[in-house]
Write a protein that binds this DNA or RNA. Structure first.
Lengths: 211, 211
DNA sequence: CTAACGTTTGTCCATCCGGTCAAAAATTTG
DNA sequence: CAAATTTTTGACCGGATGGACAAACGTTAG
């Protein structure tokens, strides 16, 4: 078991400022990518000077790394909740809904993650092959069980998960394209309600009406 | 109607070298994004010096713009082929196939596009709101027709297109994640065959077995 | 109050990067 | 062949960027 670094004791100001910086960095990194973002940009977004920021995080990469570590935890939470006990259809339906809500409520996190993966995941590859893979393996086994029991159609559970990730995160990652295609927003989050309705139909019954 | 610039006449060497540069730039831009890529990197990948490269493209942005313009054409080709005359289910099924083949055969193009959209589409917004939107509007109308005629289940045709884009491009854009989750490749493009089978099932019949 | 510690800032540096330029080398044209 | 034109290169420039540092300023505990 790899040891975590001992939790550093931090002053009140340190906790506050570090959070402030991470919040600002999430904004900047998620829209410009790691290399496209400058420390100055992040510092300005956080309302402080560059040397001041560097007092809290010694290197640009440290900010990114901290952000990534926090991200992966919250990002995988919905998947962790998938459970063997409930009704399979209900479980899948609510997983889709939770993922779609995350795309709606945390689009920056989604884009930050997408940016990292797109560029070959240079900084989080180990987490993908470790944490993510074993979680997926575990949940795929559950889904496989449902399929064997004939409670849902038999297919590849991993590709099923991919398609849920892809369709839901699409609304965060490709937001500008979605907006461009759909045209001016009707108020509220109508876009997301439409998406929720559509995706439920797609995943449950597909496009060919039963005859 | 906006006028296109008159087609510049180019020497043989110019055509060859420009192609060479664009090919190299596709590699570099698609893995590092625009800001993350340097002219030096592209020049080296193209096997020439930086000033030499700048003789063919005066600015870094010119390379990117040329790449983008070419990209969008090939990228939308499968959508253009969707046709009113055939069987709806066949049309949709082969659209998914074609898109998946593009993700397999042109992953760099997919990632280049994804990078651009992720960052807010600063350079191709007009094309999204113009060319893309009107093409989608046109095809959505066709699909809507199929739905009205009861030939496929009634849903939102635009979200249907989104979900096809998302699921297919996922295999190019999130390739490293897909690989990490699926584990070591069994030879050939088994991954893509599995994906094709899965997606066909998803889009046609969904996950709940008819009872 | 004051010493110790934590925070902030201005200044500075080395490197990288997009791009220029003039001159050399290669190629094409007459 | 030689002149004209195109291609290639080395050297250079200015600005941006990641980061170092010491000095100044605040805060807190004894």
């Amino acid at each position: 078991m790899t040891m975590d670094a001992p939790a550093p004791r931090r002053t009140r100001i340190q906790r506050e400022k570090r959070d402030l910086i991470l919040e600002a960095a999430l904004d900047v990194f998620s829209t410009h990518g790691f290399r496209g973002s400058t420390i100055d940009q992040i510092a300005e977004a956080a309302g402080m000077s560059k040397p001041n920021l560097l007092y809290y995080f010694r290197r640009k990469e440290d900010i990114h790394e901290t952000l990534m570590r926090r991200l992966l935890d919250t990002w995988l939470a919905p998947l962790r909740e998938i459970d063997d006990v409930g009704d399979p259809v209900t479980e899948i339906r609510s997983y889709i809904r939770r993922k779609l809500e995350m795309a709606r409520d945390y689009p920056r996190e989604s884009r930050l993650f997408a940016n990292e993966i797109l560029q070959g995941a240079p900084r989080i590859m180990p987490m993908l092959e470790g944490e993510l893979k074993s979680l997926v393996d575990e949940k795929a086994e559950i889904i496989k069980g449902w399929m064997r029991a004939g409670r849902i159609t038999a297919t590849d559970p991993r590709h099923l998960l991919f398609s849920i990730w892809a369709t839901t995160q699409h609304y965060a990652d490709f937001d500008v394209q979605v907006r461009a295609v759909l045209g001016p927003d009707r108020g509220g989050d109508g876009r997301f309600e439409d998406a929720a309705r559509y995706l439920e139909q797609l995943f449950l019954t597909g496009l060919v009406p039963p005859r």
